[in-house]
Write a protein that binds this DNA or RNA. Structure first.
Lengths: 224, 224
DNA sequence: TTGCTAAGCGGACAGCAGTCCGCTAATTTC
DNA sequence: GAAATTAGCGGACTGCTGTCCGCTTAGCAA
């Protein structure tokens, strides 16, 4: 218990922690479902040591990918600065899913972490969650999404993402899912969804599924 | 392996199977996360026997609640007979979530079963899946939902349902989730939801520019 | 009834998650 | 530097999932 970084760790503890993370990174990128036991063994630490640092498998994985996840989370602000709130939201979701899918094991972790009921609000998700909150807030402000919809609701709606098999044609499935979710979000807009013909609040619709040039923004690749 | 009901079971096998199901029902209603071992023990069968009948925990649970799940699944037809396709879909989804929530342990099983990647297409889900297909087909026909959206997509979209804590205020959360999903579905409609201002349909935008009307179903998703 | 055969049994077993606790050694105090 | 104090260590242990395989016995044929 107590994985929270409270007081400064003792030197050997810090060394162990780092070693575990290194080994975990190596092992997990190759065998996403390697056992905790094997990781502990390869890091030359006892089970007890492992669990003191990472209370659960998901805690480990989220920590391993923390830096990179944070990158994605932080890109929300940049997206909001250069795009309309709805487009920003959609692109961010694309990035999130893309990242989760390509980083083998992470999707799994997200899934499990979300699966462990209640832990959604738990460890490491915080950065993602707050990113979602920021994006939603901007959309609330712009009137593109109903204020009735909170971060929890959105996270729940995209829960399906973590179930997609990263080895299959995840791109198409993820796109269809996000299309659907985003359509739903925009349809909830206080000003109502767009109408092409009379052009009323059509702006809301802008975030089309095609998303051609995502080019510029760095895709937060490769951490560490 | 081979839980598929192929040839008629030998009498003792049948007896064991029934006994396991009985015990499982009792135990699971009281302790939704009772261990397989304990169920096997209380049913006076060996582990091997248990696993021969039910290859996984989820298989057991889905079998335990099979009759009731089937009831829900079958209600789809009745709903379709008395309501518009979109209303039928929505009401059915409400029923499904309501049932899953109130039947402690089932939500859990659904979650796990869906969580175990790939097994979505697996055991027991068949009745639910085909109900979804029926409902979607009706909506495709009526033009209320884009043909691009298949049963898999919908099941993915409502994956969040199984994550909701049945002990919390699941009703509100489920409602918001389903509102969102259904809005998204209807927004994808080829004829689109009518525009209040000018009455024109918002048109085909939702389906996405690429891959226009592919026509038929069989999304040929999910390889492997 | 008796014997044959394979379907089915069940417990031993391997491997894992997660806990516990006596021991070790890093750090602090003098 | 030595003693005292704990933070931290690590492996034994519990209980679980899922597999395997030698034994039992249901079902059948004569």
């Amino acid at each position: 218990m107590r994985p929270v970084k409270s007081e400064p760790l003792r030197s050997d503890a810090l060394r162990n922690r780092r070693r575990i993370l290194e080994v975990a990174w190596d092992v997990l990128t190759e065998h996403p479902d390697a056992s905790i036991t094997s990781i502990a063994r390869r890091a030359h630490v006892g089970q007890g040591t492992f669990y003191r640092h990472f209370p659960s498998r998901e805690a480990l994985i989220l920590e391993v990918y923390r830096y990179e996840v944070q990158q994605v989370a932080e890109s929300a602000d940049r997206l909001l600065a250069t795009r309309s709130p709805d487009r920003a939201l959609r692109e961010w979701l694309d990035r999130l899913s893309c990242y989760a899918m390509t980083k083998a094991g992470l999707a799994e972790a997200m899934r499990k972490a979300t699966c462990a009921r209640g832990s959604l609000a738990g460890v490491g998700h915080d950065s993602v969650r707050s990113a979602v909150e920021t994006l939603l807030a901007a959309n609330h402000e712009a009137g593109t999404v109903s204020r009735d919809i909170g971060a929890d609701d959105l996270l729940l709606a995209i829960a399906g993402l973590w179930q997609i098999d990263p080895d299959g044609d995840w791109e198409a499935r993820a796109r269809r899912l996000l299309d659907l979710v985003v359509e739903g979000l925009l349809a909830s807009a206080p000003r109502g969804p767009a109408c092409e013909t009379c052009g009323e609040p059509a702006a809301a619709r802008a975030a089309g599924p095609d998303r051609g040039a995502t080019g510029d923004e760095d895709h937060a690749t490769n951490g560490r």
